[in-house]
Amino acid sequence: MGRSLWTLLKRDITLLVLRRQDVMTIIAFFLIVTTLLPLSVGPEPETLRALAPGGVWIAAALASLISLDRLFADDWRDGTLEQLALGPAPLALVALTKITAHWLALGLPLVLLSPLMGYALGLQGMALLILPLSLALGTPVLSLLGATGAALTLGVRAGGALMALLILPLYVPVLILGSGAVSEAMHAAGAGPHLSLLGALLALALPLAPLAVAGALRIALD
């Protein structure tokens, strides 16, 4: 079973690297949405700084949402999902492995780029450190929730739009805690409680979301 999951992790990352344009699209999307903020609210530094945490977090949430659209769709369409369901690993662990590969290829670059975007929007000091930290805790939760939506809307026409309707409300707590952590850090208060709660959400979603995904995939396969 371990060998099977390891192969799956390597395969998914290889495929994402081969489909470089997908990864580049998501990163470009994240950068452009963040850049829209100064263009729409004006270049006033104080305003921008106040809006920066929310702006970067919204961009990350939307990037996560559109990138998850195809998480299971390709495997489902070409029949690989059937083979995975017949394989030695439980479907929930298959799902968790696919989500992990997806986050490593598409979530991690956003985390690493976020200080740059924060700096461009005027964040300073601790806030520049807390921003990637909050994203590192929060974007895996977004991936786990989004994967559930992606599995539920598998094979549905206009599934992407339906998935956004299903999943965006679930993104709200993560968004509040994530951007809240950065705002707190900006005002020299501790970001600790927010980050702890984000960690708690991650600890909750990590075992539960894969089970939900597995259930949804079984329905899609039936």
């Binding site: 395969r11 495929l15 081969l18 489909r19 369409r77 070409d78 029949g79 690989t80 059937e82 083979q83 017949l86």
Partner: peptide, 11 residues
């Protein structure tokens, strides 16, 4: 099991 769909990755 080999189904209708080939379960091949195009890349």
């Amino acid at each position: 099991y080999i189904g209708h769909r080939d379960a091949l990755k195009e890349e």
